[in-house]
Amino acid sequence: MNNLSVHMRICAANVSDSDVDSRQAAVSTLATSWKKEKGLLNIVSTVVDIAQSLGGDGFPSLALGEKVQKAIQKKSSSYLYEERPLDVSVCAGMAALSVINNAPSTNVWTIQDVYATALWSALSFQPVLEAERRENLRQEILKAAFRRSITSANLARERRNVPDPLGLEITINESNEVDSNFNAAIASTIESLRHNATLDREELDFLWWAQLARSRLLKRQLSSISEPTRIVASGIEGAEILRRLPCDVHREIVLRTLDDNPELSLEELLLEIAEDREQLCSVLTDSYIIDYPTIFPLLNSICTNNISMPGAYVKRPVSEWGERALLEASFVRMMRHGVSKI
């Protein structure tokens, strides 16, 4: 929260100590509340509200506005979010930073990872804001979410050292009943072997898929598929193999057939993949895609032909669309399986 006083200048040119103190208290309240949330859909809905307040005109949703207003009123009873809506984006943004700024786990997908991934996906699709101070806040959160997500993905692929089993102890009581610490003695060894084997399987499956010169999803040779369709389809296909968010190497493999890399808006991209949209949609059946276009703008557009979301008009290279397909589809897969071990 070191930058809170800086970002408060988004709301007003003159900011008092009491303004900063009340907002800092609100940030702490919001962060504490959001860290306790366990429901995936509630987390994603919260991120949608945060992202919308950080982008566009900055006016928050009713739910987020009232939540931030209640938190601020604990120290500043006269505050109303309708009169100072940008306070909501500042407090919500700084609270989101507080949530995701902790060390990622090496083998468990946590709620902090959900927040970070959803923020990364939503904010990276938004267009750049003209208001410099608001854009600085948005970029600070986007970069933090990106770093957290990438670090988590890399840590998840680290193999563990396999410890030797503990000393086996066997006891026989007076009734000749045998007891031992066998399970405890081998537990750490077996867990490490299982973890490493899971990562090996993911790696082998992904590399085997990468050797194919054919799209499993579109059932055609890659050379016969247009570049935009080929790259987006590869992102969607590759995501189904991964057990965590993609690393750099996964993105590089998805983009292995990249050639011209033209820049396309979302509408232009949909025109390019029009002939294959039905087949692409056949694997995009999760309700999250339809319910949360802010988080899954590309997959939502493929399924619904919706191009009304902010950022749709921005021309992006095909490589970025492929990376986004991989990110969004990976996130959908992880939401499907829930917060759990790798």
Score class of each variant (00 low, 15 high):
residue 179 D to I: 07
residue 147 R to P: 00
residue 188 S to N: 14
residue 148 R to S: 10
residue 171 T to Y: 11
residue 225 I to T: 08
residue 149 S to Q: 08
residue 133 R to M: 14
residue 135 E to V: 02
residue 184 A to N: 05
residue 220 R to A: 10
residue 229 T to W: 06
residue 169 E to S: 13
residue 113 D to V: 01
residue 229 T to A: 14
residue 188 S to C: 04
residue 128 V to E: 15
residue 229 T to C: 14
residue 203 E to V: 03
residue 220 R to L: 13
residue 101 N to S: 15
residue 209 W to A: 12
residue 171 T to D: 09
residue 101 N to D: 15
residue 115 Y to Q: 02
residue 156 A to I: 13
residue 116 A to P: 06
residue 130 E to N: 09
residue 183 N to H: 12
residue 122 A to H: 01
residue 224 S to C: 03
residue 114 V to P: 01
residue 135 E to A: 02
residue 98 S to F: 00
residue 196 N to A: 09
residue 119 L to H: 07
residue 126 Q to D: 15
residue 98 S to C: 09
residue 201 R to Y: 13
residue 203 E to Y: 10
residue 178 V to Q: 05
residue 177 E to M: 10
residue 174 E to W: 11
residue 219 K to L: 13
residue 150 I to S: 06
residue 197 A to Y: 14
residue 107 N to I: 03
residue 182 F to E: 15
residue 223 S to W: 04
residue 209 W to T: 10
residue 175 S to L: 09
residue 213 A to I: 01
residue 215 S to K: 07
residue 223 S to A: 12
residue 133 R to K: 09
residue 223 S to N: 12
residue 154 N to K: 00
residue 224 S to F: 11
residue 158 E to C: 10
residue 126 Q to F: 14
residue 186 I to L: 08
residue 181 N to D: 11
residue 156 A to W: 15
residue 138 R to I: 07
residue 223 S to T: 13
residue 147 R to H: 12
residue 154 N to P: 02
residue 184 A to S: 12
residue 207 L to D: 06
residue 167 G to P: 09
